[in-house]
Structures are given as C-alpha cells and as structure tokens.
Amino acid sequence: MNQLLRNYPEEVQRILAKYPADRKRSAIMPLLYLAQRKENYVARQALNDIAEICEVSSTDVASIVGFYTLYYDQPAGRYRMQVCTDMPCALRGAEKFLHELCERVGIKEGETTPDGLFTIEAVKCLAACHRAPMFQVQGDGGIAFHENQTVEIALAWMDEVRARVKAEKEAAA
C-alpha cells in the first residue's frame, strides 16, 4: 500500500498537477519533502512509494536523496539547526558563533542533543551573508531562517522550542 498516497492524497495530487502529465518524474523532489515532513528523513518505504507515483525505479528516487543535501536518509534531531559558516558569514564571526553555541549546548558539530530535539550542523552559504551569524532550522516539514544571531538569542530560541514541545506532550498525554 502506498502510504504517501494514503496519508497525503490531496497534496500528492496538487504536486502532480504542477507538471505535465507525462512528466511525473518532476514530482520526485516535492514528494520527497512531503515524505520528510513527519520524521525529517526519507524512510525506505517512501522511496518505493514515490517511485510508484512517479513511475520510476526506487533507485532513481534514492539518487535524488543522495545528491541533494536537504534530504536525509537517516533520522537526526527533530530540528536541524544549520549554521552557515561559509566564507562571507565566517568573515562576520559565524565560525566562532557555531563553536560557542556547540560548547554551550554541550554537543559537537553534527551531533544531536540527548533529548533528540536539536542537531547542530555547519552548512554552506544560505543567502543571508549580511545578517551573519545566522542559521536555518529544518524541521516540522519546513525551513525557517534565524538571522543576526548571538549565542544567547539562539539558546533562548532553543529553550522556547523545548518548552513548546513539552507543553505539546503534556497536552497529548
């Protein structure tokens, strides 16, 4: 059973409708974002689901996951905090920011906090060079920019998220 089709029937159709009917392959990338929405990574089953929808092989879909950096084949933290440390940002202190942030959070770059909420990573230029230090957050099916950062602001945001997640959990319980 195609889980993607079952979970997101309208969205799948809306995505397919963007492309000519004989060009379903174009829908692979948007469908991968859809597949990543809940877990923040592409599970094996999703490869097959997308392959079926787009009429390609699972290998063709996997190749896309492998090539593009915003798709993941492994789970990580619920929020990926991706700090741009590329040259223009580095000229404005991004490397130092990342270093201190990691130190304060108590993990190394590339690692995930023990609560499984945050993975901190260094990434290439995000088109926000004038507002460095900055990071983007990939999670909950979307991406948001956090610009003109200091370590304090970033930590405060992380606390906010923790509190929100905790509240959600309690509400669900």
Binding site: V56, S57, S58, T59, D60, V61, A62, S63, G66, F67
Partner: peptide
Amino acid sequence: GDPVIGFYNRGRSLEITTFSE
C-alpha cells in the same frame, strides 16, 4: 531499460548503488 542502478551522493563521494528490490 532497467534503471536499477544509479549514483548516490555527489562530487567526490558519488557512488554506484541500487535501492531497487
């Protein structure tokens, strides 16, 4: 007509794989 092998990753890390079953 059997596209069951492909590239994974990119750049220097490109590698041939299959995810077909």
